[in-house]
Design a protein around this nucleic acid. Structure first.
Lengths: 344, 344
DNA sequence: TTGTAGGCGTTATCAA
DNA sequence: TTGATAACGCCTACAA
């Protein structure tokens, strides 16, 4: 069961190992007939180059790591798929790391990432502290932060692929004002705190521009059950807000179920819009409006940016910061008004 | 920016690299004061052992790969979390591979897995052919197949952590018979074909034991949209079956929505039960019954079995095949009958 | 076009 | 208890 090595191939093909190395690396200096001979032997022996040895020899592992929190994993399958596909196209392997509260802290992950000498990494925003970022910065590992706008210091080795949630929220609220709605609630989502903050900022900015103050931030726990109970409770001594902004599906569904059970109808009494779309939203009755965030693309772009960073020479200018556009999708949980665009 | 190596540490600490190697590997033969000295230097220089070089020297990478299909990723977050946590506990890194129709075929993945010299791998069932398995078998890579019962040849290097869907389906149908229901439909799920087949087998076996034939297999496409349309159509010239078995949430929800829109009420006119539970099922109205499959544990167990296989000596007997129990969860979409158990 | 030899960063064996 | 030194499997000048 001994794994066969480049030596075995060389001996069998009666050439030196350098030649074998050349053919497996597609060097063009090797004569056609010897190339064929070597290839035949490789095939016959079933030789597979040892990537570990290659990595050591080249100081380059052609693997990049992706690290995200376990909690977010369930919501980011598409983004992950985008990353995986692009990584595969560029022949990068993926070292996958998750962080979880009890078991595996970001610190451990960073330690592992450094030891395994990956060429670069992708980090999900909301998943690291400034301290942790500092460690990473010491090692100057090329990385791209994905999700929301990265608000830390911009080093040359970090890129950012993001949705501008501040702007999204701002635009949404401005739009509501134009429709005469200013009774707005934003449901907290503890899973995405920095995104949450950016949303809050955007909403507040819109309010302030009208000389108003936003006070519709509803803070509670982060599961469906607790959201549902919270909102059921809330409705006992509040009327529902006219527009309710939820971040994820389960919050939106919690509002929907609780409101209906309190005799309210949607969208007449209250409207609901979710930020992150999801296949479950159109399964609800009524269907729930959301934003179309091209998650797969976002992952794909993030990985592509990273691969570009990895091959870039010093001095190459490349766009490491890319904003992803999110478009509203109107469904049954919001009322459609005439679009107020002036230009055709 | 040169990465510092064991040599740098050795020189700085004024010992040989062998000694440094000993302290980072917790060898007990090194004198306490030199250990301290070396440790201090390691700390000061921020030295991190190069896992690639270690891998080469030891012929052991302490990484295992997980490979699953992109489509399944969205449904298997918990199982993945279980695997990741256990891997982390045992200090294994994870090489993550996904297969997708257009981009990355199983064959490529196998190629990569072999090249990267992982110590073992976890495969999701329904994601490989016999041929591919044959390739893997040649290399005798320790692996565990997770999900459903593995029906291929049992080599010594493959384990299996699974839910017995045949039995689950059989028991469910027997139960129905006992309640006087024999009008049963099973919705096809193209994402999980081998599980589907095992379900079908179990149902058919139960029917045959009663001298009946099962003909309620409803086959169609695999998205919510198409399921919904299919079932809406189906209801135009069929009455709904009394019991409808769905595999995943979206199929169950499709049935629920379509049936209600046709004026049927649930569970009075038709009952629905889903195999794979999910947080969305209890959000529906009515809430939808399902089975409790401990997914996180399943992943954790699978990874644990793999790690055990990796350290096992030849001749060690260890339980590589583990069945995971699934318990029914009764919710609003099924009618609760008195349990017919005899023993208290 | 091919081969030789040194290096990539560790671990392990054997002496000292 | 420590230190040389030979692997581990590959790549790449440099020489032939």
């Amino acid at each position: 069961m001994k794994r066969i090595t480049i030596y075995d191939v060389a001996k069998e093909a009666d050439v030196s190992l350098a030649t074998v190395s050349r053919v497996i690396n597609d060097s063009r200096v090797v004569r056609e007939d010897t190339r064929q001979k070597v290839k035949e032997v490789i095939e016959r022996l079933g030789y597979k180059p040892n990537a570990v040895a290659q990595g050591l020899a080249l100081s380059k592992t052609t693997t990049v790591s992706i690290v995200m929190s376990e909690k977010l994993l369930a919501y980011n399958a598409k983004i992950l798929n985008g990353m995986m596909d692009v990584a595969h196209i560029y022949n990068y392997n993926i070292m996958f790391y998750t962080t979880s509260k009890g078991i595996s802290k970001m610190q451990d992950v960073i330690e592992s990432v450094i030891k395994s000498r990956v060429d670069g990494m992708i980090l999900f925003n909301d998943n690291f502290t400034q301290e942790e970022m500092d460690v990473l910065n010491e090692y100057k590992i090329p990385m791209v932060v994905v999700g929301s706008r990265f608000e830390g210091e911009r080093h040359d080795h970090v890129g950012n692929v993001y949705v501008d949630f501040e702007k999204l929220a701002y635009d949404l609220v401005k739009d509501c004002f134009a429709k005469g709605i200013d009774d707005i609630a934003l449901m907290e989502d503890k899973l995405n705190l920095s995104m949450m903050n950016q949303m809050k900022k955007g909403i507040s900015r819109a309010f302030e521009e009208e000389g108003k103050t936003f006070d519709g931030y509803l803070s509670y726990n982060d599961t469906y059950r607790t959201s549902y109970e919270f909102y059921s409770d809330y409705l006992k001594d509040h009327k529902p807000n006219r527009l309710n902004i939820a971040f994820r599906d389960s919050q939106a569904i919690a509002i929907l179920n609780a409101a209906r059970e309190h005799g309210y109808s949607i969208p007449e009494d209250l409207q609901i819009i979710t930020v992150l779309d999801d296949k479950y939203l159109p399964m609800m009755r009524p269907t729930i409006s959301a934003y179309n965030i091209p998650e797969y693309d976002m992952g794909a772009i993030a990985m592509r940016v990273l691969t570009k960073m990895l091959v870039a020479q010093d001095g190459d200018k490349l766009e490491k910061n890319i904003e992803i556009q999110a478009e509203p999708i109107e469904r049954g949980s919001t009322i459609h008004y005439e679009v107020k665009e002036e230009a055709a």
